[in-house]
Write a protein that binds this DNA or RNA. Structure first.
Lengths: 185, 185
DNA sequence: CACATATTTCTGTTATGACAGAAACAACTA
DNA sequence: TAGTTGTTTCTGTCATAACAGAAATATGTG
């Protein structure tokens, strides 16, 4: 490929803007611009793309693309696919947004909730045997631990539901409360 | 206060460890150590503390404490309280963990979902009028927008429920599916 | 095996965020 | 008003993360 055909240049303005904005939004989500842009490009692309095309399209270094793809694959929202007649690996993104969200949630839980739960369990067991800790302080540690444990279980269970069910639950929104008769009592 | 009575030193080991670990865990949550430690200290402290005591207790600069408290107050999980006979502002943390989670979720929604929704709506309206965007691409943008919109609504509605109800919903976990008869169909 | 091509790891640079300490700015009291 | 105490803003330093480009390492193919 001698002449650099920048994919992003031949894309319609609306798509180009999507990729750029998605990259910016990544900041709010704790992912860096490169990763977010690459994900956006693969999400909107109708065909799998090889790493060097991604690199040229977005103007990021080849090595950066490699590392970013690795991370996206760790999130399980991008996967490697073979393309007939091309030795290069091609990559494609998950296009089901609910599945996407679930995968991201799984990683978030692993990063944010699991370590917290472990740490709190440890603090708690220390506190139980420590006369220097007041009853109120012990109570607070216990509450924090119980809450984290609740969230841990809830995430796991929601995670395990089929996307179809999850969609319905979310779409029900607060009507769920009336349906369950939880409002009173 | 000539002699530096470091609060954290007179605290039992279990409590000290909680504060330190909470500070580390903050990294996973996207908050810096100072803020997380200060929050932990206030959460576990049975009495409101003034800024300089916090500063000495944790060994962080007074200015840092000031800024961190400002941010914690922006999250609405720490508040200023007056203490009789002391001119200094004292600070105390929300001790209801569910309320705490709700406040944090509100800020997260404002930072992560609201801007995304706005951006996607914009991209979408661009795409609708752009013949260069394929039907499939338009569909993907629409799906992403619809999903974000669903999450936006869901967050808002859950946010508005009383803590009591929220607790029950979470504790129900996936049993909710059976209760609603959502499993089949 | 030689040679091409694809991918990952390494290294140095740059940009960003966290933070301390100083300075500026209240608000109160004698 | 001068002095005291508490709070915020400013400035410079340091640590970390993002990133490009080069080097090293596969994985082919003739």
């Amino acid at each position: 490929m001698t002449e650099t055909t920048k994919t992003i240049d031949v894309m319609p303005e609306a798509v180009r803007r999507f990729i750029l904005h998605w990259g910016d939004m990544g900041q709010n989500w704790g992912v860096n611009r490169s990763i977010a842009q690459i994900h956006a490009l693969l999400y909107i692309s109708e065909t799998p793309l090889p790493a060097d095309v991604i690199s040229e399209s977005l103007g990021v270094a080849r090595s950066n693309v490699s590392n970013s793809l690795k991370e996206l694959m760790a999130f399980k929202i991008v996967r490697r696919v073979p393309v007939a007649g091309d030795r290069r690996d091609h990559f494609t993104a998950e296009t089901d947004v609910w599945e996407l969200a679930r995968r991201i949630a799984a990683v978030r839980k692993a990063r944010e909730i699991d370590p917290a739960l472990e740490t709190l369990a440890h603090c708690l067991s220390d506190a139980e045997g420590d006369a220097g800790v007041s009853d109120e302080q012990r109570r607070r540690l216990r509450e924090m631990h119980a809450f984290t444990s609740d969230m841990d279980r809830w995430y796991s269970q929601m995670q395990a539901l089929p996307v179809r069910t999850l969609t319905r639950l979310v779409r029900l929104g607060d009507r769920i409360v009336a349906l369950l008769g939880l409002a009173k009592s």
